[in-house]
C-alpha cells in the first residue's frame, strides 16, 4: 500500500488483511502492562489537521506511539499555513524535514489526493484522515472492525446509514467499504440530505427509517449539524429528531442482535437519544477503541509494508 486515500480503492482482500492485522494487534496488546511495540521505531509520522478534531487526531497519535513511531502534530493555526503558505509547500516542507508519513485532515475534498500527487516522488506516504465531504477511510475501517466483532462478519448483513449523507465523508467511506466486504447498505435520510447521484452508489436509498428497522443488523447514525438548518435542509431539529432520530422506541423495533454505531461527536437528543447511546446495543466506545488498532494496522501496512504474524 502506497497511500491510504479512500475506502473506495480498498479491495476486499486488502481491507480484510488490514482488519485482521488490527485484530492481531488488539490481541497482542490485550492485558499488557506496557502497550508499546517496537515495530515503527525510528519512523516519523506527522499529523496535519486543518480542521478541528479530537478523537481522530488523538487516535492516530496513540496508534503511532504504541508502535514506537515518532509522532509530531502540526496544527494549521500555529504553522506557516496561517501565514498563507500553500498546502503543497507545507507538504513538501514537512516531507523534506523527514516525514515518512503524513496524516492529513483538510476541509477540501480531494486534499489527500492532491498531497499524494505532490509527495509521490519524495517517498512520503499519505493517510487521509478526512477530506471535506469526500472520504474518511480509517473511520470506515474501524466501523467495519467493530461490526465484525459484534456480528461475527459482514457478509450478507444489512446496515443502515442514517443522517446527513450529503455532507458526510463517513457515509461515503462506509458505503464503499461495507459493500466491498459483502454487506447490504441502505441509506436513510430526508431527500434534501441525499446527494444527487447517490443512487448510483450501489446502496438502496429511502426516507423511511421505521420501515427498515426490523430488517437491520446495524444502524450507523451520522451527526447532523445544527447549522444545516440555515441551508433549509430540514425544517427544525425537533422534526428531524422525530423522523430520523434513534430513540428508545426505534431501538426496540430493531432485532435483538442489532448494533447502533455513531462516529461521534454525538448530539444526544438530536440524532441519538441519550439512553440509546448508553445502551448495550450501542458500540460507541468500542468504535473508539478499535480506531486505535485499525490505525496501527494502517501505519503498519504503509510503513512496515508486510503482514503481522500473530
Amino acid at each position: 500500500m502506497r497511500h491510504l486515500l479512500s475506502a473506495a480503492e480498498l479491495g476486499a482482500e486488502e481491507a480484510t488483511s488490514l482488519l485482521d492485522t488490527a485484530d492481531t494487534l488488539k490481541r497482542t496488546l490485550l492485558g499488557r502492562e506496557v502497550r508499546k511495540l517496537p515495530t515503527l521505531r525510528g519512523r516519523t509520522v506527522l499529523t496535519m489537521f486543518y480542521e478541528s478534531s479530537t478523537r481522530t487526531r488523538v487516535s492516530f497519535e496513540i496508534a503511532g506511539k504504541w508502535m514506537s513511531a515518532d509522532v509530531i502534530n502540526v496544527s494549521s493555526s500555529g504553522s506557516s499555513t496561517s501565514k498563507g503558505e500553500s498546502l503543497r509547500d507545507t507538504a513538501l516542507t514537512l516531507s523534506a524535514a523527514g516525514a515518512d508519513c503524513v496524516i492529513v485532515r483538510h476541509p477540501a475534498s480531494g486534499a489527500a489526493h492532491r498531497l499524494s500527487g505532490w509527495l509521490d516522488e519524495t517517498g512520503t506516504q499519505v493517510v487521509n484522515a478526512g477530506d471535506g465531504m469526500h472520504e474518511h477511510p480509517t473511520q470506515a475501517l474501524l466501523d467495519a472492525a467493530t461490526l465484525r466483532e459484534r456480528l461475527g462478519g459482514l457478509d450478507g448483513r444489512r446496515i443502515a446509514i442514517v443522517g446527513d449523507l450529503l455532507h458526510s465523508r463517513v457515509a461515503r467511506s462506509n458505503v464503499h467499504l461495507l459493500r466491498t466486504l459483502g454487506a447490504e447498505v441502505v441509506l436513510v435520510a430526508p431527500p434534501t440530505l441525499v446527494p444527487m447521484g447517490a443512487r448510483q452508489w450501489g446502496a438502496e436509498v429511502t426516507g423511511d427509517l421505521d420501515a427498515e428497522l426490523p430488517g437491520l443488523d446495524a444502524v450507523m447514525m451520522l451527526r447532523v449539524q445544527a447549522e444545516r438548518m440555515d441551508g433549509a435542509f430540514f425544517p427544525s431539529a425537533r422534526e428531524y429528531s422525530l423522523s430520523y432520530g434513534m430513540n428508545e422506541a426505534r431501538l426496540a423495533r430493531l432485532p435483538e442482535h442489532a448494533v447502533v454505531l455513531h462516529p461521534g461527536p454525538m448530539l444526544r437528543g438530536m440524532e441519538i437519544a441519550s439512553r440509546v447511546a448508553d445502551s448495550p446495543s450501542a458500540a460507541v466506545a468500542e468504535q473508539v477503541r478499535n480506531g486505535v488498532h485499525v490505525r496501527m494496522a494502517v501505519l503498519y501496512h504503509l510503513l512496515a509494508g508486510e503482514e503481522v504474524t500473530a
Binding site: 473506495a8 472520504e135 461515503r172 444527487m196 447521484g197 448510483q200 452508489w201
Partner: peptide, 10 residues
C-alpha cells in the same frame, strides 16, 4: 451536481 460530484464529495 450529479453522480461524480456526489462520489467526490464536491
Amino acid at each position: 451536481e450529479g453522480a461524480n460530484a456526489a462520489r467526490l464529495g464536491l
